Amino acid sequence: MVRIFGILIGLFFSGWLLVSFGMGAKEYYTNRPADTAEHAFHQHAKDISFTSDGPLGKFDRQQLQRGFQVYKEVCAACHSLRLVAFRNLEDIGYNEAEVKAIAANWPIPTPDIDPATGEMSTRASLPSDKFPKPFANDVAAGAANNNAIPPDLSLITKAREGGAPYIYSLLTGYQNPPADLPAANQPGPGLHYNPYFANLNLAMAPPIAAADQVSYSDGTSATIEQMAEDVSAFLIWTAEPKLEERHQTGWAVLIFLLIATFLGYLSYKTIWADIKAEKKKKEAEA
């Protein structure tokens, strides 16, 4: 009796779920929500590939150094890299002396007060230090950026849907609003139209605004697209500095598993060969 009662209860709830699902599906297809301007004008990330893409991907150290230069000269004024230490730059091709020189030109605030000026004093960064924040706190960051707090870029390619192609698209996507953009979605004071951003309008002004904004030491032409691609590649590295090691480990593990599977199969054949032969012999004698 208890079993029958339990089955009936289960059938009731299962039927109720099916009815609810059917009613919800009917409501969605008969009264679909109207597309907003964000849906109509928002664009997906541009199709761009990086050398680190795919299971065999590797970083282009020269490109990473160019990307770091773009970050240092363009992005660092507003965006932090709080999870990256100066000494990590050795992984992208800088030697110890170069890392020390880079760190020395990046002052870090200290709790001490300069008695001569009354201002907070600073010290030169050490290779073991993380990249310092460009603002003292979020209040100062918002005040300097139209009340929008610039995000930390350490993991930005992991934190944003679309990853590095999205970052590249955003940096190269600033444009004038289309003529048919609704008035409610027109960029207000201090905002900039960008169809790759979720709500179409960004508080961040175009950071890469013109060609040759950065002078590359390797002779690469510093177009807007090139600078955007280089800094996007650099931010892939900041988010996944061990990407190459992970790829190498993955292939080693895969090869090991294939070999182990083959050896296991041979062991199976060897161990059970005599048993099968003995079983067939007994069956024949019977």
Rank of each mutant, 00 (worst) to 15 (best):
1 M>N: 09
6 G>V: 15
8 L>T: 14
9 I>F: 14
13 F>C: 10
13 F>M: 09
19 V>N: 12
22 G>Q: 07
30 T>G: 00
40 A>Y: 03
41 F>L: 07
48 I>P: 05
49 S>N: 15
67 G>N: 06
69 Q>M: 05
69 Q>G: 02
70 V>S: 07
72 K>D: 13
73 E>M: 06
77 A>K: 15
77 A>H: 14
78 C>T: 03
81 L>V: 13
96 E>W: 00
105 N>E: 15
106 W>I: 14
110 T>S: 01
110 T>P: 05
110 T>F: 00
118 G>A: 07
118 G>M: 03
121 S>G: 10
125 S>T: 04
133 K>S: 11
138 D>M: 05
143 A>G: 08
146 N>I: 02
149 I>P: 01
149 I>Q: 02
150 P>N: 07
151 P>F: 02
153 L>Y: 01
165 P>C: 06
176 N>C: 00
177 P>Q: 11
182 P>Q: 05
184 A>K: 11
187 P>F: 02
187 P>D: 01
193 Y>A: 08
195 P>R: 09
200 L>R: 02
201 N>F: 08
202 L>D: 05
202 L>G: 00
202 L>N: 03
204 M>W: 08
207 P>M: 14
208 I>A: 06
209 A>N: 13
210 A>Y: 14
211 A>Q: 12
213 Q>P: 08
214 V>A: 12
215 S>Q: 12
225 E>M: 09
226 Q>R: 15
236 I>E: 14
247 H>R: 15
251 W>Y: 13
251 W>F: 14
254 L>M: 11
260 A>I: 05
266 L>Y: 13
270 T>H: 11
270 T>F: 11
273 A>K: 03
274 D>Q: 11
281 K>V: 03
284 A>L: 13
